[in-house]
């Protein structure tokens, strides 16, 4: 049996079960914020302008120079912080019940438990493998050049279309987005709840908004490769 803890420190840290959830919530929400911006930009593929706007956007980002570098490092740090904390959380959770139930079922009612909430670690892990693949494919991919309005710049559009014309890539990408959808469906409201932002009134609202947001964001990323594969012509 456990003895009465004598060593309870009276100082709080972010490395308690509650503190870690604050970290998860904060990093998660910021990552969602990034995803929304990222998606908005990617939707430029649908502009039907042969990639003009997309390339201009990408080019303007690159003009930021060192700022972009800092932003990327920050994003990577967020991502890594989120992952490391997530892994620690999951390890602690598994340790908290080393003997599993033979039979477990939800009572329903007010429960918010869904496959999405149960699979956060798995969907997260899928994203963990997906993100480097994705970065490697686009950010670090071949450098095609194009000239828009007399300015030479990277032809990202061409790269995107080219890759998404490969059915393996397009369909894998789309499939991963289904998992993203799950991660976000629980993640959004959960992050707000983890940050203590919800009360009786806002909790149900946040839950619904989260599900809608997940469908919109992941839906956008889901349609993108498929649309490209089926409908976007290969640029000359």
């Amino acid at each position: 049996m456990h003895g009465m803890a004598k060593d309870v420190t009276r100082k709080g840290t972010w490395q308690t079960s509650l503190g870690r959830k604050v970290i998860m919530g904060l990093t998660g929400i910021l990552l969602i914020g990034y995803l929304i911006i990222h998606l908005t930009a990617n939707l430029l593929v649908f502009a039907g302008d042969g990639g003009r706007l997309l390339n201009l956007y990408s080019h303007s980002l690159h003009q930021l120079g060192p700022l972009l570098f800092v932003a990327r490092i920050a994003l990577a740090a967020l991502f890594i912080f989120h992952i490391i904390t997530g892994i620690r959380v999951v390890i602690q959770n598994r340790k908290a019940r080393s003997t599993r139930y033979t039979m477990a079922a939800s009572k329903g009612g007010p429960s918010k438990m869904t496959p999405a909430s149960r699979w956060m670690a798995i969907t997260g892990l899928i994203l963990l493998f997906f993100v480097p693949w994705h970065v490697n494919m686009f950010t670090l991919g071949p450098y095609y050049e194009t000239v828009i309005d007399g300015v030479p710049m990277r032809d990202l559009y061409r790269l995107v279309v080219e890759r998404f014309k490969d059915p393996a890539i397009a369909f894998t990408y789309a499939a991963v987005m289904l998992f993203l959808c799950m991660h976000l469906a629980h993640g959004f409201w959960s992050a707000l709840q983890s940050l203590g932002a919800l009360n009786r009134r806002w909790l149900p609202v946040a839950y619904t908004v989260g599900v809608i947001l997940a469908i919109l964001v992941a839906g956008g990323f889901f349609i993108l490769p498929l649309y490209t594969y089926f409908f976007v012509p290969m640029p000359a």
């Binding site: 309870v8 959770n93 939800s106 909430s117 629980h186 959960s190 709840q193 983890s194």
Partner: peptide, 17 residues
């Protein structure tokens, strides 16, 4: 909260169960 952790309970993942 510290005591809760010392006792070996898990984190809350907001399942609402």
């Amino acid at each position: 909260v510290n005591q809760m952790d010392i006792e070996g309970f898990g984190n809350c993942s907001n399942h609402g169960e």
